[in-house]
């Protein structure tokens, strides 16, 4: 009997492999189709449209890299980038400080602690529309508006908040902070509770107490949690949109126009879908760079948390 040739063996191995593979594909087919329609195709079309001038209706013209050249001198875009950086720089330190402070506050075996934690989480389960409905009223410029009344109690005169060029962005920061701190408190708590109590006992034996206990045990062991929170929160902050869209529409005088809002505006207010696609690529690149710089702290799958 003739020996099986190598090519025949390869073919039969191929067939065996194929037969083993086939039953698995139905399990991932829906995921794959959704991925193609809602991610892969848009991803490709983003690059295709970035070299076109089109309103999706009548005009459609090839312009090459013109959009990317335009970006260099687009003052509104530069303002939007500065606003995004400004928002992030105000928001992240405040968020980290407030959420950590509250986490430390509620990380105690006191009665009713679970209820307090749940109450702090309440703003986070709320949609941005509800948030905006409430805070548009609370930040009313009227002297008897809720926030103006409250600051009046400590002698601060009424402010114009969302309709003031200098106060609109800090107001958005405040609202975002109010919404998010409970969520990050939960992550801090998980980090705090993962620290073994033996370490505190050992440090005490070595004579550490009070602040030094936190300085040499808590803070070093919370560093991974802190890094994780900063990465997640920064990527979230760069994408802030809903509250700005509803509350200020990017104003007053573009004071709250962020990069995402600018992309939205170019596409849906001005019908410049080509330029908006090019801006989306820019925005992708920005997020990617920020994420890469910070990514050595990120771990997927089996987390420390």
């Amino acid at each position: 009997m003739a020996a099986v040739s190598p090519s025949q063996r390869a073919t039969s191995q191929f067939l065996r492999r194929l037969r083993r593979s086939l039953p698995w594909y139905p399990f991932i087919i829906i995921n794959a189709v959704i991925f193609v329609i809602f991610n892969l195709v848009p991803w490709i079309s983003m690059f295709r449209y970035s070299v076109l001038k089109t309103d999706l209706l009548s005009t459609r013209e090839f312009v090459g890299i013109e959009h990317f050249v335009t970006m260099l001198s687009d003052a509104k875009l530069h303002k939007a980038m500065l606003n995004t950086v400004w928002f992030t720089l105000m928001y992240i330190p405040l968020l980290v400080a407030v959420s950590l402070g509250v986490a430390v506050l509620v990380n105690r075996p006191l009665r009713g602690m679970k209820t307090f934690r749940a109450l702090y989480f309440l703003p986070n389960i709320t949609s941005v529309a509800v948030l905006a409905l409430i805070f548009r009223r609370f930040l009313s410029p009227r002297p008897d508006g809720p926030i103006n009344f409250l600051i009046g109690l400590v002698g601060i005169p009424p402010q114009r908040w969302l309709i003031d060029v200098n106060q609109a962005m800090p107001s958005i920061v405040g609202i975002s902070l109010w919404e998010a701190f409970g969520y990050f408190m939960v992550i801090w708590l998980a980090g705090l509770q993962a620290i073994p109590s033996e370490l505190y006992d050992a440090a005490k034996v070595d004579g550490a107490n009070g602040w030094r206990l936190h300085r040499y045990v808590t803070i070093p062991l919370l560093r991974p949690t802190a890094a994780f929170i900063i990465v997640i929160a920064t990527i979230g902050a760069l994408q802030v949109f809903g509250s700005i869209f509803i509350l200020t529409g990017g104003g007053p005088v573009n004071a709250t126009t962020t990069v995402v809002y600018q992309i939205y505006s170019e596409a849906f207010n001005f019908g410049r879908f080509g330029y908006a696609s090019a801006l989306s690529i820019l925005f992708f690149a920005i997020i990617l760079i920020v994420a890469l710089i910070q990514s050595r702290y990120l771990r997927f799958g089996e987390d420390v948390y």
Binding site: R20, W24, Y264
Partner: peptide
Amino acid sequence: GDFWGKNVIFVLFLGILIMPDTALIVP
């Protein structure tokens, strides 16, 4: 599963997970 392309598809999925969804909204 033990199927062709498992690792490639897995990495592709991982890529989507990292991508910010707001950037893809216009496309």
